[in-house]
Write a protein that binds this DNA or RNA. Sequence first.
RNA 1: GGCAGGAUAGCUCAGCUGGUUAGAGCACGGCACUCAUAAUGCCGGGGUCGCGGGUUCGAGUCCCGCUCCUGCUACCA
Length: 513
Amino acid sequence: MSRFYITTAIDYANGDPHIGHAFEKIGADAIARVHRQLGHDVHFMIGMDEHGQKVAQTAAVAGVSEQAFVDEISTHFQEMWRSLQISNDQFIRTTSPQHKVGVQALIERIFATSPDAFYEKSYAGWYCVGCEAFKTDAEIVDGHCILHPTRELEWVQERNWFFRLSAYSDRLRALLDSNPHFCQPSSRRNEIIGLLDSGLEDVSASRSRNTWAVPFPRATSDGQQQSTYVWFDALPNYLTGTGFPDQAGWDTRWPAQLHVIGKDITRFHCVIWPAMLMAADLPLPERVWGHGFVLLGGERFSKSAGVKLDLGEAIARFGSDAFRYFLLREIPFDGDGSFSWERFGERYNADLANAFGNLASRVTSMIEKYNEGVIPAAGASDLETADLADFGDAASAMDGSRGYLLHEGLASIWKTVARANEYVQSSQPWALAKAPEQREELLQVLGTLGRSLARQAIAIAPFMPSKAQALWEALGAPGTVHTRPWPTLAAVDAAGWRVTKGAPLFPREESAT
RNA sequence: GGCAGGAUAGCUCAGCUGGUUAGAGCACGGCACUCAUAAUGCCGGGGUCGCGGGUUCGAGUCCCGCUCCUGCUACCA
C-alpha cells in the first residue's frame, strides 16, 4: 500500500479560526479522503504554530500566560475542525516538547552535516513598522515602504545566526526544473522560478528579542542565547510530527507526499524548507500545493481583515457538509474565489436540494412504490457508460495526476447527477409502472438509477462525509461508504439492497436566495 | 518601478496547436411531465469575445500599441 503523508500549514495561534483557515483544512481533508478511497496508507496532519512575538503580545493583552493563551486558541481550532469533519490523524503543536526537541535536533544536524550553512552576521536595514519587517530596495520608493508610504522607515541593526540560503540556488533551480510537480499550481512555480532567477539572499535563523520561542541551540559568539526564528521553528513541524529525530519509524513516514498551503507562503515551502532539508541531508517533500484565497467582497480573509463573517454561522446555515461542498465547488482550488451568502443559497438549492437531494428522493421513492423497496439488478446502459467517464474525470482531477482540482472533480460528479435526472424524465418509470408488459424495462430503469445513486454516494464521500453516509444507509448499502474504493466504482452492484426513503438529504431552503 | 497572468452572455467560467451560425452552469421567460424537496425535463431571450491597428483566404484564438484588473517583488505569518 503506498503511503500518503499529507499536511496543511499550521495555523498561527494569535486569533480564532476564520473561513480562510477552514478552506485549507476542508480542501486538504477532501484530498486525504480521496487518497484513502484510492487505497493509500494516508497520514493526515494539521496543527498550530504557537510561538512568536505576536502571540506573546496578544497573551499579555489578554492577561494570561503564553501557554495558557495558545492552549485556549488551540482548543478553539480543534473544536472547529471537529465540527467540519476534518479527518486528521494527528494535530501538532509547536509548543509540544517533541517539536522543540525536533527543531533543535534539525538545526544541530545542519551544523553537523553542512558546517558552512549557518554563520553569524550583523544585519542592518530599513525596518517598516507597518509591515514589522525589513524592506529590500525593491520595496522602497522615495524612501518609503511601498505598502506604507506614510510611515517613516527605521534603520535597525541586529546580530543573528544566518542561514546560507544563497548557496542552494542552483540545487533549488534544478529541483524545480526536473520536477514540475514539486511546486504547484504552475502559476506558483513560475513565481518561484522568477525568485530564484533574481537571486536568493541569505535569511536569518535566530532573533534576539523574541522570548516566546524555541531556544536556538547555539549561542552567538558574544555568548548571547537567541531564539529560533519563525521559519526554522514552523516549517520543521512537518518533520518533527513524524517523531524526528528519535522516535521509531519517523523515517518511514518522512518525506511528506504533499504539503497543502496558502499561496502566500509558497516561497517558504518551495525555497527555504527544501534548502533546510538539503543542508540537513534529509529527503525532500514530493509536492507543495499553494491554494488560493476565499474572498469576501473582493477582499481576502486574513487575521487583519477581522471577523467579517462568522464561521460558526456559515456552518450552521446549511450544515457542515453543505458548507464544505460550497467552498470546494465555488472556489477553484488552484486560485481565488468569492464567498457570498447569495451564491451559497443558490448553490445549496440548485445543486444540493433540487438536483442531488431531490434525485435521491425520487429514486428511492419510486423503488419503494414500484418494487417494494428493493433495488433491482440492471444491465449496462448508455447512462452508465457516460457516468463512468465522468467519474474517471473526477478521479483524475483529484488524485494529483493533474494537480488537485477539487472544483473540477465536483463539477464532473454533478454531470452524473444531471444525467440521472434527465434519464428519469426520458424513461418515465411512472408510465412504465402502469403497463405490466413493461415490467422488465421498469426494473432496468430502477436498477440503473439505484446503482447510479450508489456510485454518487461513494464519489461525494470525500466532500460531504455525513451526507454520503446518510445516502449510503438510505440505499440499504452494507458497511460504510468511506471504505468504498474509487477504483471499483464500475463494479458497484446495488442489486438487492433495500432502500428507505427518509427525510430529504438537503431540505430546500426557501429563504436562501 | 520590475516580472508574471488575466480582460468571452446579468453572475462564475470553458474555448487545445487560428477554420462552418462563440459554449456550459446559475439567474430569467415559455412549454411539458407528475416519481420527487412546487422538485425535474425541453425550448428560448441575452455576447461589437477590453480598445485600436496588423498578419491571413479566414482571428476570441497569432503580432504590435493602449486601457483596466490580479499576483509576486524575501525574514508578520
